[in-house]
């Protein structure tokens, strides 16, 4: 019953938004160059179903870049986070530094990265990984520093030391915090990569948005926006499923 009512609320809002959109374009209050008519956008989306490669190509490029960037961010963020969080001296010294750096608008580094790595995939991956790294590293170092010392002392009395303790106690103890930060990192990485593709590049969803925008092809631009939204929803759902599997593996 509540599910039905909730679905009703969603449907209601969507209907209202679509109706407003249709009203604004059909009445001529807003020019088609500013706001494409829903029917024109729908035509393009339906047209793409006949040639799926037109969408799959750019989406694949963006997804691959985001996937590699997130992987780099996780490996470096968790590794460096554990290294810093394990030492009282290191966390006192570096937590403020890392937090301060993460607050910088790191996108300013994109021209530098593009100059050294080129305007292709590698510079997109680098800027995406940079944005993904900070939330993961910060969450990991804080969580590691707050692992209940009683758990670690108990491990010592049982003969646990070094990497086995990290693997069996520290990592499972901090994994909820890491997974939460990975979700933030995922969104940041995806946004950054699409933005970087938009700024310069010849492939990916961001490039398609830029091309449609610069070609004044408003219906295509809106169709790509719809694709980008669907992409984000699907990626988040996949991430939820993936973390459930990963957590089972880690908490062993």
């Amino acid at each position: 019953m509540t599910h039905l009512r909730r679905a009703g609320v969603y449907v209601g809002v969507i209907v209202v938004v679509l109706a407003l959109w249709f009203g604004l374009t059909a009445s001529g209050i807003v020019k088609p160059l500013m706001l494409a008519a829903p029917s024109d956008v729908a035509d393009i989306l339906i047209g793409w179903t006949a040639t799926p490669g037109e969408v799959a190509g750019p989406v694949g490029v963006t997804l691959a870049e985001a996937g590699i960037a997130l992987l780099i961010a996780v490996v470096l963020g968790v590794g460096i986070g554990i290294a810093i969080g394990s030492s009282r001296l290191m966390i006192a010294a570096y937590e403020p530094v890392v937090t301060a750096v993460s607050a910088l608008p790191l996108i300013i580094l994109y021209p530098v990265l593009a100059a050294s790595l080129g305007v292709g995939g590698p510079s997109k991956v680098a800027i995406g990984a940079l944005y993904g790294f900070f939330p993961i590293a910060i969450a990991t170092m804080r969580a590691v520093a707050r692992v209940d010392p009683g758990m670690l002392v108990a491990a010592r009395t049982m003969g646990g030391r070094g990497l086995p303790v990290v693997g069996s106690i520290v990592v499972p103890a901090v994994s909820p915090a890491i997974f939460a930060s990975m979700r933030v990192a995922l969104s940041l990485t995806l946004v950054t990569i699409i933005a970087a593709e938009f700024i310069s590049g010849a492939a990916g969803v961001g490039y398609q948005l830029a091309a449609a925008s610069q070609g004044l092809d408003t219906p295509t631009l809106f169709a790509w926006v719809v694709v980008a939204v669907l992409l984000t929803v699907v990626v988040n759902a996949l991430f939820t499923a993936l973390t459930a599997v990963l957590r089972k593996g880690i908490e062993r």
């Binding site: 209940d148 009683g150 002392v153 108990a154 009395t157 003969g159 499972p172 103890a173 908490e251």
Partner: peptide, 18 residues
Amino acid sequence: PRPDEISFVFQDLALYPW
């Protein structure tokens, strides 16, 4: 610590919740 000769039980138990 000498785990093969001495074992501990702590006040907070130190069980691993996962």
